[in-house]
Nucleic acid binder design. Structure first.
Length: 377
DNA sequence: ATGTAC
């Protein structure tokens, strides 16, 4: 990196961004993900990159990193602008949670709500006709709404061990997708901060971020209503987001924003989720890992997982005795536990590299993803 | 990832 040899001259033709890796040799990192990291480091104006142990290859660049640059690269944020995780405490003790009843009632999450959606959007300064029928719904892929139990927590961190918790992972649905789709030709080679097109992108991006955060809030409210309980937010952390950082632009792609001091890290069906306290390391760019990180891509999962009826049934239960509502067979296979790294190893690497500390660990109890019929049963 | 491209 740095210099390149041209004939007999050594010329500084590029000044690649510095990559700091917050993972150890124990981490499962695909070679292709690190190649993407090196590639992005060579883009014009890229100054610093922080890479986290959930790093894996993505469409335009690696997922699980934060990139500080002089220019704006919309593809580094991707189409799901504002996607993130929100963790809530529910006002319900575990002993009151009844699995069969909860499984029946949570199915309402398949249907979009119509009441007050326009006014909720106006409440955050967004026109009521911006994707109103998607607002309140989870979406596909790795998105979910999960009831969790508190398995362990720091004694000085006062979380109620008898309570149940809710982790929502969702984003901006068609909104962010439309924002990425409306950027001008050539924007992928870097948008310059002072251009009109850039400020238009940033404004729309910021609205998609608000939309996504409201979406997680409404999903959580609906889940709490379905469970006949109240809720309060512990932390909301976006992980696909562009923000100003000093005089540069910080692109987080599958890297949680650490600005609120706490970050939820999602486990897979087979591994726990965590609440992390990121440490104050400048090289980490106010970011940390957001999840377990994909080990195998979606399409290859169909060849890796058996899909007999009994296997499909087994995939709707977790090793923690929890249940999964996912009536889409392909999605169940693509999100099978082996598709992900272990969240324990991701957290161990964050702790080993002093990027973050775990303050609490949660086990999945009931994961809602998708029904076959849109919830009408 | 996506009121999805064919």
């Amino acid at each position: 990196m740095g210099n390149s040899v041209l004939g007999d001259r050594t010329s500084a033709v590029n000044s690649d961004g510095v990559i700091t890796k917050f993972y150890t040799s124990a981490a499962w990192i695909e070679g292709r993900a690190e190649q993407q990291l090196e590639h992005v480091a060579g883009w014009p104006g890229v100054r610093k990159i922080a890479a986290f142990p959930d790093l894996h290859p993505g469409k335009y660049g690696p997922v699980g990193c934060a990139v500080l640059a002089d220019r704006i690269y919309p593809q580094l944020i991707g189409n799901d602008i504002g996607c993130g995780m929100s963790l809530f405490q529910l006002d319900m003790p575990l002993r009151k949670f009844k699995m069969e009843k909860a499984m029946r009632r949570m199915r309402v999450l398949s249907e979009p709500v119509t009441d007050d959606i326009g006014s909720r959007l106006e409440g955050i300064g967004i026109k009521p006709d911006m994707f109103p029928t998607s607002l309140s719904t989870i979406g596909g892929g790795n998105h979910f709404c999960e009831v969790q139990t508190l398995a362990d927590s720091d004694t000085d961190f006062c979380l109620d061990k008898s309570a149940i918790y809710l982790l929502v992972h969702s984003g901006s649905r068609g909104f962010g997708n439309a924002v990425l789709g409306s950027i001008p030709q050539g924007a992928f080679s870097g948008m310059h901060p002072n251009d009109i097109a850039t400020s238009n992108y940033v404004k729309s991006h910021d609205k998609a971020v608000l939309w996504a955060s409201l979406n997680r809030q409404i999903i959580a409210e609906r889940a709490a209503e379905a469970l006949r309980t109240d809720l309060h937010l512990i932390v909301d952390a976006p992980h696909n987001i562009l923000t100003q950082h000093g005089d540069g632009w910080l692109h987080r792609k599958g890297a949680a924003s650490a600005v609120s001091g706490l970050v939820p890290l999602a486990g897979s069906r087979a591994t726990p989720s965590y609440l992390l306290r990121p440490t104050d390391q400048p090289d980490a760019l106010m970011s940390t890992a957001h999840g377990s990180g994909r080990r195998y891509d979606r399409s290859s999962m169909h060849g890796r997982v058996r899909a007999k009826r009994s296997d499909i049934d087994a995939m709707q239960r977790t090793s923690f005795g929890g249940r999964i509502i996912c009536e889409d067979r392909d999605l169940l296979i693509e999100e099978a536990p082996i598709a992900y790294k272990s969240s324990q190893s991701v957290v161990a690497d964050l702790e080993a590299t002093r990027a973050a500390q775990s303050v609490a660990m949660f086990h999945p109890l009931l994961t809602f993803k998708k029904t076959r019929d849109g919830g009408r049963t």
